[in-house]
Simulated scan of single mutants.
Amino acid sequence: MTTVAIRAGLQRGLIETRQGLTSATELWNALFFPVIGSIVMVFLRGNVVPGTNFSLGTQAVPGILSLSVVFTGMIGLGVTLIMDREDGGLLRAKAIPQGVLGYLTGRVVSRAALAVLGVLVPLAVAGVLFTGLSVDVVTLVWVLVVGLVAVLPLGAIVGSLFRNVQALGFVTLLNMALLAISGVFYPITALPSWMQWIAEVFPVYWLGLGLRSALLPDGLAVVEIGSSWRHLETVGVLGAWAVVGFLLAPVLLRRMARRESGSTVAAAREKAVQRTM
């Protein structure tokens, strides 16, 4: 039964991905942050990374792409789960044996595909706008895979804990704060040590570091902590977050599914209507 549910979920994920690729809203959501970030970085091309002659704009490109992965993957999945609870999609899935597993599999697949799209399309554009990018395809692939495995379960946790999209504002603000101290827009070594320690706890920094190692020349590692790309540490920390996510997400999702009923969906719809009035 579980295998059947996962197979159905994969098929659903492919269908949702095709629908997303033909949806202007979905495409814009996936490309919004990279597009805006790239425009900002274009104006910083004349500035250089401290201690080097390398363009600060180019150095920030991987960080912008990591921002896209976090928001399209984690926040996007969380928003999708909340909206499906409000319109009864989760309740309908719950009525089918192993339906929640198939539903979640489909959502994860489609979100992962859109997150990858949010990296590859802006990366192709960045290759034209910025000089100095040096793409290591193997590193790029494994960083994206490990990064998505780390952040997508967190998105499922977020979607399980919050009952409306507005409540996600706190999570979004927290992510923005982490992005500000994670070396996304400026080398992290320029920040105070205590900020570096905080950044190193969360997956945002390590995803950005991994993407920088995949897209920037090896000489740029000199502005990173320890003057190294720290691949082993990247796998270790992202892997640890993935384990935490995979342990907590099923428990919270099952609890969320048990609480779904016709009355809760009706109440959620009423609140959603009130918010739009």
Rank of each mutant, 00 (worst) to 15 (best):
T3L: 12
I6C: 02
R7P: 04
R7G: 01
L10E: 00
G13Q: 01
T17Q: 02
T17L: 04
Q19R: 02
Q19G: 01
G20L: 00
S23W: 03
E26A: 14
L27W: 00
F32S: 11
F33L: 15
G37I: 12
I39Y: 10
V40H: 06
V40N: 14
V48C: 04
P50S: 12
G51L: 12
G51I: 11
T52G: 10
F54K: 08
F54S: 04
A60P: 03
V61Y: 07
I64D: 07
I64S: 04
S66T: 10
L67Q: 10
V69S: 02
M74T: 09
I82H: 02
I82W: 00
I82T: 08
G88I: 13
G89V: 10
L90M: 14
L90W: 13
K94L: 09
I96S: 00
Q98D: 06
V100Q: 05
G102T: 03
S110V: 01
R111L: 06
L114F: 11
G118N: 05
V119W: 01
G127S: 13
V128I: 15
V128H: 07
S134A: 13
V135E: 06
D136R: 11
V137D: 07
V138M: 12
W142E: 01
V145E: 08
V146H: 03
G147D: 10
L148W: 13
L148D: 11
A150E: 11
L168T: 07
L168H: 11
G169K: 01
S182T: 06
G183E: 06
A190G: 06
S193R: 04
S193I: 02
A199Y: 05
Y205F: 15
Y205V: 04
W206P: 02
L207D: 10
P217S: 05
D218G: 07
G219I: 09
V223P: 07
E224P: 11
I225H: 04
G226Q: 00
S227C: 03
W229E: 09
A240V: 05
G245H: 06
F246A: 04
L247D: 09
A249F: 01
A249M: 05
P250N: 04
L253F: 09
L253P: 07
M256S: 12
M256R: 13
A257R: 01
R259I: 08
E260W: 01
S261C: 08
G262R: 09
A267W: 06
A268G: 14
V273I: 15
R275P: 09
M277Y: 14
